[in-house]
Amino acid sequence: MSFHLSGSIVQNFKVRFPRLSSRFRIKALAAGTAAVVLAAFAPVSAHAGAPKAPRASVALTFDDLPGIVLKPEQGYVDETNEKLLERLHHYHFPAIGFVNEGKLDEIVRERQIANLERWIKAGHDLGNHTFSHGSPNALGAEGYIADIARGERVIRPMMEKAHRRLQWFRHPYLETGSPAAVKDRIDAWLTAHGYRIAPVTIDCDDWEFAEPYDEAVMTGNKAQAERIRNVYLAYTERTIGWYRKGARVLFGRDISYVMLLHDTRLNADSLDGLAAIFKRQNMKPVALDKAMRDPAYKTPDGYQGKDGIEWLERWSLALHKDLPWNEYEEVPKPISEEYNKLDNR
């Protein structure tokens, strides 16, 4: 997801909600209780004393570079990237950033490009996230392919100059094309042009926390920012646990996960907390290429629907195994309400 500037904010986020997958059907029956909402405010330290989790690895992927922000303030975007990259370096965490080149002209083009160069200089790869963050449902196969091709005009030569290969593609909204003919056409083009699809096997909906967090930071409300950050980290740790349980249902073991994050101030300010979660969960951040060597990623993806769903759900359909949706938690209601209020402003 992305907080695109100008009039596209509403358009991009409204597409996210029609994910009428099994998690939402279960939600209608099981979610929304006061206990679930209140549990979201439990401190992260509530996990202290729990048995040590099995060892696992996770690739950290950040969408919507060169950064997403509530208001078009270039200095804020620059500071976000500088801090995020500094904390990744501090923890020696490899990462990859997926770029929407359409963002380059949304604020100050040369400074937006400089942020992409920061990522490469810091040792991280860049991937293609399309030019406009559009949907294949709206653009069709050929329009979507054109948007992918347009989204590499800056980053491909940038990567080549750094003696690296542009090889990773991430679908906006995780929408891979529908019906089958559209998906197959897009997949064939990606393969022919040397791209590999970057799947998602952990998605903690960080985008929904990020806009309220920007509002708190930009208005100087430090207490509100801290509250949102703490709720985000607590929710993220529980959601990571759910995905790990889901992987064990499908494969009988932890897989090497690929985690979807976004280039936001929230994640820049939360990297210390995320590092603490990975330590408690016994998870080691690794490069995307290394994570993708896990045999789980050879599982067929036969999903052909319009909804953007992550890969554990796709694989559950292919393997005819049910994920534990009755245990899945939606984003806490107070966060969703605050996000909706800002999005409708």
Rank of each mutant, 00 (worst) to 15 (best):
P54Y: 07
E313L: 02
L342F: 11
K333N: 12
Q11W: 13
W311N: 13
R253A: 10
V77N: 03
K103A: 13
T191Q: 14
S316E: 00
L70V: 08
A188P: 07
A192E: 08
A247M: 07
L288T: 08
W168D: 08
R19P: 03
N137S: 11
W315R: 01
F251H: 07
T239Q: 15
P212G: 04
F3L: 15
G134S: 07
K103T: 07
L274I: 14
Q281C: 09
F13P: 13
V44D: 02
E237I: 15
L139D: 01
I228R: 01
I155E: 02
A234Q: 15
A276N: 13
A34Y: 10
E160H: 07
R87Y: 06
L29I: 11
R345W: 07
D203K: 01
C204D: 07
Y297Q: 00
I228V: 09
H90T: 14
G123E: 00
I255W: 02
T299F: 01
V15C: 09
D63C: 06
K321V: 09
K71L: 12
N221T: 04
V258D: 00
K52P: 08
K284T: 14
P179A: 05
I277C: 06
S178C: 12
R248H: 14
G177Q: 04
D203N: 10
A34M: 12
V154W: 05
Q112P: 06
V37E: 10
P332A: 02
D272R: 02
N137C: 07
Y303L: 01
N115L: 11
L65S: 14
A114E: 12
R280G: 12
S178G: 10
N115D: 14
Q11A: 15
R153S: 12
K333A: 15
D214Q: 08
P72K: 08
D187C: 09
H262K: 05
D214E: 05
E175V: 10
N81L: 11
K27P: 13
